[in-house]
Design a protein around this nucleic acid. Structure first.
Lengths: 134, 134
DNA sequence: CTAAATGCAAAACCTTTGCCTCAAA
DNA sequence: TTTGAGGCAAAGGTTTTGCATTTAG
């Protein structure tokens, strides 16, 4: 049984065939698929899955905090399994999404929030960049 | 003549009554209105303005880089006049948007991008926080 | 068994666009 | 005067939802 499915069980989510399928797809994706992409990948294994179920499932998983939703500026939500916090750099020319972590950044953000009288419950940082040509 | 209108003139944009109205509303807003809100505020002064024009105007102004578009996670684009770069802290309990600037953050972001082989063309940082209760 | 999940299609949102009319430069 | 802008309504894209049916627990 996969990591993500295990987490869902721990949270007490009812697992249906459709949900298990979507969960396994997210778990085995290394990119940041949107709902339509998840739907396409799911349809390969089970043509009867509806896109409404995919939408309902990602909302369920997001509420359960086992997946994260991102908006990279193209008007569609994109998803990935929740894991150690990391940031995204989006190549504006290719659309490629590159992940990175930076401890200084993590510290700085918490400090800033604290200084403003807030505790950080979430944050998003996206860098949009152009590859430096050699 | 307002700052923002002046900038638009400098960019050579054709100024119509409708555009001037939308420009003045954005310039005099201290919040981050979405298109519907801009449309409502514009309609008070001129009921004939259409929402299509508001959409076309914000796109024009965004392309001219005199206003910035933000997405704060509620599915609607929000706009504000372009000015010194700053970040947003969103109070998750009230929805209030608090602006701040932090030079360390600015430097760090550029460094990170550079280290990854990119020049930063844009970036977004949003902190989501809860007010620390006294 | 029974409450909850699914599929389907319609609807809800936000945003864009075609077309004809109108106005800025 | 002439090209670009505006108004209106229709269409586009993503996401949500009502309802009848199916299924997990």
């Amino acid at each position: 049984m996969g990591r993500l499915l295990k987490k869902c069980n721990q949270k007490g989510l009812r697992i249906t065939n459709q949900r298990e399928l979507v969960i396994s797809i997210i778990e085995n994706s290394t990119d940041h698929p949107d709902v339509d992409e998840l739907y396409k990948r799911a349809s390969i294994k089970d043509k009867s899955v509806s896109i409404a179920t995919v939408y309902r499932t990602v909302k369920l998983l997001e509420d359960a905090k086992v997946i994260d939703r991102h908006e990279f500026g193209d008007g569609k939500a994109r998803y990935e399994e929740t894991r150690e916090h990391h940031e995204h750099l989006i190549d504006v020319e290719t659309g490629e999404v590159i992940e990175f972590i930076n401890e200084d950044l993590e510290k700085l953000k918490k400090e800033i929030a604290k200084k403003m009288g807030y505790t950080l419950v979430d944050h998003k940082l996206e860098l949009f960049g152009k590859k430096i040509s050699k």
